[in-house]
Design a protein around this nucleic acid. Structure first.
Lengths: 419, 419
DNA sequence: TTAATTAACTTCAGTTGACAAAGTAAATTT
DNA sequence: AAATTTACTTTGTCAACTGAAGTTAATTAA
């Protein structure tokens, strides 16, 4: 029987209702791991703090922490009695901290002009960093692995440590990256398609690696070390060579169904609009990314198309001209700013996050990030009584991305050790 | 100390790393409730099925079900031995089902031309429905309550039951609806702003009510009764007077941070584009909604602006003209279709869902939903190796929306009884 | 100085919620 | 009629957590 009015059929007998859940899906982590992560998140915390923070009994905390101390994951800090309490009455708390030695992780951010790497301990403290300049051309997987080898060598030399001390690696690069399989279907850095980067890396360096899109990695940096730590739902938008976005929903990085990144840069903002490097028309990227500005710059500056100035230098010139009052140059930034407003307002309309973080080095072009742009963004949203979404601007360097990549490794190692 | 390079500071002593989770947040429902919901989802299920489905031991299922039977929430079905098994070996299973009597819920969908209501039992079976035609003008809260009173009277008369038998009500209406507080900041149906609809309803009918945006309610209908039941992540897009969207992430309805709907209709698809009824320009709605088509229709059909034909009738005429070959009429639908493609491709690029469901009565205008539109949508997405997102079209009636509203009430009642 | 107070932490008995394994039941197959 | 198969129940056990009582270490008040 099929009910025409409701459109919902009953296939013989009671069909039931409600979502069909796949399994019992262990949603929440074991309490032991929660205790550990609470201490790490706080930096240091007394047992009583943990009990209050997690809402569990003091007795449980004693049991769990003594176990964690026994296996060498936590330890007590001597002489923490006096600090960190306003009224010093009662028995002073004994602070706990993560035993951060011994489980080191590396975070790597691959880029077209320079690769960056960071070494952190198990508490997330940065121990060393390294940078490797590189030629901005598409490379083979072997070339990229060679470069990563050199980068890692530099990093371990700077830290005066052996690579054998490292437990895991996190890796972020732009393009389409399948986090689950570690395969890179396409990346602007790679000449080949469908590169099994995880497998290649692990074969070469004999270290487990966790690969992800660079926008996701940057979002993890905010979630683990930055403004997003206390926030359950936020978006990170970044403008570099392309336009990327990462999204945290319910305190977790959201990756779509197919485990790939969210392609904000290829959101269409104009039917049959400007040509994008992806081959389509009207993508947000085609109005915002550096190549989009650069191609207009040569018109505005009257340069010859054969002039082989680097897009980077071209943009700097354009920015200078705009500041100096060149009208054509100004309209280029102006239009880009308006499209940025539009893109951001769309993100807010669709996701309704608590906060949007604009991040990336291009944030220096304040034409893009002026108050004017933010005001325009607010003007493009539905004017209803709700609290407007906060916006933060982080003009941070490449090391933040690499640090986000360490979070990828840190959480994997934590799950492995405590799961 | 503030690290310029990384942009991330350490405010005296170890700051810690990782997300700061608010509480132990009971993510998963108690097993007792999971057992109940599994039986309801299956319609009927033997204890052994439940054990396999939830991956728990048979002993636990016996304990939990005997408790659920004792409190009158489940019951055994006599004579279910032979059915539902292919090889009839072994002891025949005894099917369980939800005791569906006694906990009735009402679902209501308010609309501008007609309100609809559905009465279901605790197993989600429809017992009765009712419809109330209404004048499409903005009303006061009292008028809307009066109309709902009449609608509910009709419904209970049709079911030959007393309202006192009803446990809870779910209510869906278009506009901005705050599900948590039950306040309606703005709705096209209401003359007033910030109407505390939940409080008013409960005061008047002495029944708990759960209010939500109509797109969310339709999404719940798909999640509870329709194509989304077996799907963990999907989007529902609906085109009626406006353009709405509902989103299911991880088997749950996603409402943004501020608890309001996701405003797909006001996603900007053209900088300084067509005027939308929200007062802004370039909203998707301004190219797709019936008022958008209607205002172009009067131009195409050469009607006088004073001609007070209803927009509905105007659209019908336009559709007929387009089918008959009128070029201007065709371009109207054609353009709307292209913008629909664009909107859908943006939804896919940003959310990467498993499935998109297009729903609503306007689905008859096949110019909007032709294969051409879907092909165009696919063309607007990044051409990478991933499996394309499935699309389903459901041209269902208003009762489905009302049924979705019952899901709102059903899940709330279930949580209350079993939480 | 001593006692009272406060708060952190530990200990331990008791409850709960699950499982595994053994046992019982009811059908089909041999 | 016995063997087999599957569903369900019973029972002992284990692990995780709580709550209450007890211990420790500091400050404050007498």
């Amino acid at each position: 029987m099929y009910d025409e009015t409701t459109g919902i059929g009953f296939e013989g007998g009671p069909a039931g209702c409600g979502p069909l859940l796949p399994g019992p899906g262990a949603e929440s982590k074991p309490l032991r791991q929660q205790v550990f992560e609470h201490v790490r998140a706080a930096g240091r915390a007394a047992r009583a703090d943990v009990a209050r923070g997690l809402g569990i009994s003091a007795g449980s905390v004693t049991t769990l922490t003594s176990d964690l101390i026994a296996v060498g994951l936590l330890r007590e800090i001597e002489g923490t009695s006096r600090e960190s309490r306003e009224s010093g009455r009662g028995r002073p708390p004994v602070a706990l901290e993560v035993v951060h030695e011994g489980r080191l992780v590396i975070g790597i951010k691959l880029s077209d002009e320079r690769h960056s790497a960071v070494l952190t301990d198990f508490a997330g403290n940065m121990l060393a960093d390294a940078t490797l300049p590189t030629i901005p051309i598409r490379k083979t997987a072997v070339q990229i692995l060679d470069e990563m080898g050199e980068l890692i060598d530099n990093l371990m030399t700077a830290a005066a440590l052996s690579l054998s001390a490292v437990t895991a690696v996190g890796l972020g690069l732009s393009g389409l990256v399948d986090h689950d399989t570690g395969i890179v279907p396409w990346s602007p850095l790679l000449a080949d398609r469908d590169v099994p980067l995880k497998a290649l890396f692990e074969a070469r360096f004999a270290l487990p690696v966790h690969v992800d899109n660079d926008a996701n990695v940057l979002t993890l940096a905010e979630l683990w070390f930055g403004a997003g730590r206390a926030m359950s739902d936020f978006a990170v938008v970044t403008i570099e060579h392309g336009v990327g976005m990462g999204l945290v929903l319910n305190n977790r990085l959201f990756r779509g169904t197919r485990g790939m990144g969210l392609e904000l840069g290829h959101m269409k903002v104009h039917l049959d609009g400007a040509l994008c490097r992806c081959g389509q028309r009207g993508c947000l990227e085609a109005y915002l990314a550096d190549y989009a500005l650069a191609r207009e710059a040569s018109t505005a500056l009257g340069r010859n198309a054969r002039n082989m100035e680097s897009p980077q230098a071209l943009l700097e010139t354009l920015f200078g001209e705009a500041k100096a009052g060149n009208h054509a140059a100004r309209t280029i930034f102006r239009r880009a700013g308006r499209y940025l407003s539009l893109g951001l307002s769309n993100v807010i309309q669709l996701f309704d996050p608590e906060l949007i973080i604009l991040s990336g080095e291009r944030m220096r072009y304040d034409y893009l990030y002026a108050d004017e742009v933010l005001a325009e963004m607010r003007g493009l949203m539905l004017a209803d009584g709700r609290v407007p979404c906060k916006v933060e601007i982080h003009a941070w360097g490449d090391l933040v991305w690499a640090r986000g990549a360490t979070a990828l490794a840190l959480s994997a190692v934590t799950d492995a050790v405590l799961g």
